[in-house]
């Protein structure tokens, strides 16, 4: 064991910390899901727009065709959201991306095992709340411009609770924070909204845009955390790999 030099110089707490930070910041899984959801939503948006144009132009055959296509796309969206096949495909792509780095799962966290019932109820309430918001808009009780702040009232706390219970890294908190800030800036009269006919982007862009920012920040941080982890771990670990490991006495 001639080439084994100083041995225990790395602080173990640092190794544990950077391992945890790295494991919590592996966001490729979320990025693939994000791409998939945005892709399907874009298709739904395009078909919905086509349906509306066909209705306005009075083109009945195109209208009925696009309604059928819209229904198929909508059911496809529901199917990919709940199917095991999608989860498996996303997981396999994630493993392929991280192939060289290997697999690591964040520390077993009792919080993330199962969401409490009140959290599931809160998610249900959030959906009902947004449907209520859409009704308010359709009856002109609420202007589309205020849909994002209206949504932020419930989406921000729901996201915070979900992030807490899933034990995600700091990057995930960027999502509700940026979404909340966006709502405050809108209410303060800062001109950061899309004009007509792009009003719907005022809700879509903050939801998915800030989500993407958070995911990308997490990915960049995971590169840094891995570099730090390797540095800290290899400190004082100068072992000749060709050497045989002697038996302990």
């Amino acid at each position: 064991m001639a080439s084994r030099k100083s041995t225990q110089s790395a602080d173990p707490r640092e190794i544990i910390q950077w391992t945890r930070r790295y494991a919590q910041s592996r966001t490729i899984y979320f990025l693939i899901q994000w791409c998939l959801i945005v892709f399907v939503i874009c298709i739904i948006g395009l078909v919905a727009s086509l349906t509306q144009q066909a209705y306005t132009a009075g083109n009945k055959s195109l209208f009925y065709t696009s309604v059928v296509f819209l229904s198929i796309t909508f059911f496809f969206f529901i199917w990919i959201s709940v199917s095991r096949w999608t989860a498996e495909v996303v997981w396999q792509i994630t493993l392929w991306f991280y192939g060289r780095e290997g697999f690591v799962s964040p520390e077993e966290n009792t919080r993330s095992k199962q969401l409490p019932r009140w959290v599931i109820a809160l998610i249900g309430l959030m959906l009902v709340y947004h449907i209520f918001g859409a009704i308010l808009i359709s009856f002109r009780y609420l202007h589309l411009q205020y849909l994002q702040p209206f949504s932020a009232i419930i989406l921000v706390p729901v996201l915070c609770v979900l992030i807490y219970y899933q034990g995600l890294g700091f990057w995930a908190w960027l999502w509700p924070v940026l979404y909340g800030l966006h709502a405050i800036l809108l209410l303060a009269g800062i001109p950061i909204s899309f004009p007509s006919p792009w009003f719907l982007l005022n809700i879509m862009v903050p939801i998915f845009g800030y989500g993407l920012i958070a995911i990308l920040v997490g990915h960049v941080y995971s590169r840094y955390a891995l570099w730090k982890l390797k540095t800290v771990t290899r400190q004082g670990l100068e072992i000749d790999n060709n050497e045989e490991i002697p038996e302990e006495k």
Binding site: I15, I16, Q17, W18, T19, R20, A23, G99, R100, E101, G102, F103, V104, S105, P106, E107, E108, L226, L229, K230, T233, R234, L237
Partner: peptide, 14 residues
């Protein structure tokens, strides 16, 4: 620091 890690991860890190 984690729930589980695989052989590649340990190989790559160490």
């Amino acid at each position: 620091g984690v729930e589980a890690a695989d052989f590649n991860f340990l190989l790559n890190t160490l």
